[in-house]
Amino acid sequence: MTPTVPTAHAPLDMAELSALTSLPLRARCLADAVGAGRHRSRRRGASVEFADYRDYYPGDDLRRVDWRLLARTDRAHIREAHEETPMRVLLLLDVSASMNYASGPGRLTKLDFARCLLGALALITRRQRDACGIGLLAAELDGYLAPSTSPGRQRSVWAALEAPALAGQTPLGRTLWQAADAAPRSCLFVIASDFYEETDEIAAFVRRLRFEGHDAMALHVADPQEEDFNFTDASQFQDAETASELALDPPVIAAAYRAAFNAHRTKLHEIFLESGFAHLSLRTDAPPLAALGAYLARRAGKA
């Protein structure tokens, strides 16, 4: 069956999305689903779109005086307009082995889900003429591309998302720190990861971002089975990153596992929120429209 591309604003079906084999198609589907377009900046300046009037102060550019209003009111006013400012968005994709997990056939792996999501964000940033960069969180920060509005950079971002090299065990804290080192000022860090890292490491990274004036949005991707853990048969569980094994009877430890998993996610949520950043929990079986919406909201607020 030939997959069809959903139309804009159409309800997004994850089964259809996973059936699409092309990352651009998936990304476009997502972007169209939220109906993202160009944004307006909160900053005001000289532009074509009217924003407000203010009194003239000596030193203001006389070209911005509204002469017609001066003729009517005998007072000089400066016409202000919305200023279009580019935003630097740095997409960080966790390419650790744990991200290459899907609990069932027909489901996207966490990595594919994240690629799709970041691809949609890249598409949105291009439409909004924002600067977009990317970094892959592997054993080291890999394939870092600084945010840029140039079309070439957009293509490079797409190329990086198309075929990311899968890493093994990833020290997420260290690679994030490296990304912070490399990023220019005032970036929006969009981190798509399963965040299997010590919360202290993450917290240190988040504090640094806040200190350096960056913004951040954590896209915490999880497979449904990671959340629910409803295995029934006693099995030998193998760590996707370290290949270590553990004999477990899932029904016995399910409750404890779920408690620990949720505690970790809650802690991360608190860490990001404390710094004024966003932390979104995403399941690979649900459309990430909320994440895109949150991005747009965040973009609008920062502009």
Binding site: E226, S235, D239, I253, A260
Partner: peptide
């Protein structure tokens, strides 16, 4: 015996502590 074919899981980070938990008396 535990099954020979392992079940790959993203991380055993939260499973390892739980595995040390033994059955309660009712179980």
């Amino acid at each position: 015996r535990w099954p020979r074919r392992p079940v790959v899981f993203p991380s055993l980070r939260f499973l390892a502590p739980s595995s040390r938990k033994t059955e309660n008396w009712w179980q």
